[in-house]
Write a protein that binds this DNA or RNA. Structure first.
Length: 329
DNA sequence: AACGTCGTCAACCGCAGTATT
DNA sequence: TAATACTGCGGTTGACGACGT
């Protein structure tokens, strides 16, 4: 758009003339912005910048406020729940960071984007494959996401080890106040869940869609045809990991649908919160991460052994991963 | 101690869509 | 209806600290 160019060009001139600042924000600038927004509210960023006496563009002010200064921001590490949701939603929507961020209260699109680029893409690189490749998606779906679910469950059960540590950490961060670990609908110990919460085999993806009155997931341009490899291939004996829809659904249902909704995880249709009474959360069977299954999943010939989990998982995760990958791959 | 590399994240840029005049 | 202004999004960059050599 030419107008944008004109504006940017004028901004450039203003910068050169010393009328506009760039780069890191100072404490004084932050205070000006916070105080002005507190007094007058958000929006109309260009005029806000001028009125507040900030030598910044409106865009810069907006970004600073949204990504750093607004009070409802959630600081600290991305939790396993959030990781799971990011993986899940990205598999569905692709790089729609803003849309994904809408489902992670307190997180910004910038934060999620950075997470994806620094953590997720790094591992795709280590695996010598494209982040959008089917192989990497399989690793995410059959290894990474189930492991995250395990960790969430472990934390929910109040057990020891990484889960408890994570839980404690989250409490320190104030990230656990919404009751993510204590679902009023389901016992946190999955072994005590009713049998109907499990789907053994078959086209669970289809079942999920049907049970939730959902159409086939809207796939991003990079994920077309990859939403459910095992079910699509008709392999009825595959371990029951979730189709993308099921993952988010499980998360929001089992981890705490009500708090998720209250916290802004809206778009009920997408996350399957609508008609929750009829839902059958698809928790995995006992073979989620069994390494013996990997060859069937087409992961074995993949350079799984080089998958450096260190920066994603904790020490016991590494141990788990080492055991998993050495037993059967 | 000095240097190089890597990871993280705040900030910027260009573009597109929407609202306003 | 066109022109202009504003807002939001996704991609990219650069500063900076941590870590390894």
């Amino acid at each position: 758009m030419d107008m944008a160019h004109e504006r940017d060009a004028s901004s450039e001139e203003e910068v050169m003339a010393g009328e506009l600042r760039r780069g890191p924000w100072t404490v004084e600038e932050d205070l000006l912005l916070v105080n002005y927004v507190a007094a007058h509210g958000e929006g109309r960023w260009n005029s806000l910048a001028r009125s507040a006496g900030l030598k910044r563009t409106g865009k810069s002010c907006r970004l600073r406020w949204l990504n750093y200064l607004r009070p409802d921001l959630r600081r600290g590490n991305i939790t396993p729940q959030e990781q799971l949701l990011i993986l899940e939603l990205h598999s569905r929507w692709g790089n729609r960071w803003s849309k994904i961020a809408q489902h992670l209260p307190g997180r910004t699109d910038n934060e999620i984007k950075n997470y994806w680029r620094t953590r997720v893409q790094k591992h795709a690189k280590q695996l010598k494959c494209d982040v959008n490749s089917q192989q990497f998606k399989d690793v995410m779906r059959y290894l990474w996401m189930p492991r995250l679910v395990e960790r969430i469950q472990a934390a929910a059960a109040g057990g020891t080890g990484a889960g408890a540590g994570q839980h404690q950490h989250q409490q320190q961060l104030g990230a656990d106040d919404d009751g993510l670990y204590a679902s009023p609908e389901l016992p946190t110990d999955a072994s005590s869940w009713p049998a109907e919460y499990y789907t053994a085999a078959g086209d669970h993806h289809h079942q999920l869609l049907m049970s939730n009155n959902l159409a086939a997931p809207e796939l991003s341009n990079t994920t077309a045809g990859s939403s459910s490899p095992s079910s699509d291939s008709g392999a009825g004996t595959q371990p029951c990991w979730l189709a993308p829809v099921g993952g988010a659904e499980w998360f929001t249902t089992a981890c705490d649908a009500s708090s998720a909704a209250a916290a802004g995880m809206h778009d009920d249709t997408v996350l399957g919160l609508a008609g929750q009474q009829q839902q059958q959360p698809c928790l995995l069977g006992e073979t989620w991460t069994s390494s013996s299954e990997l060859p069937e999943l087409g992961v074995a010939d993949f350079e799984i052994g080089s998958f450096d989990v260190e920066s994603i998982w904790s020490m016991d995760d590494n141990l788990w991963f080492a055991q998993t990958t050495t037993q059967g791959v």
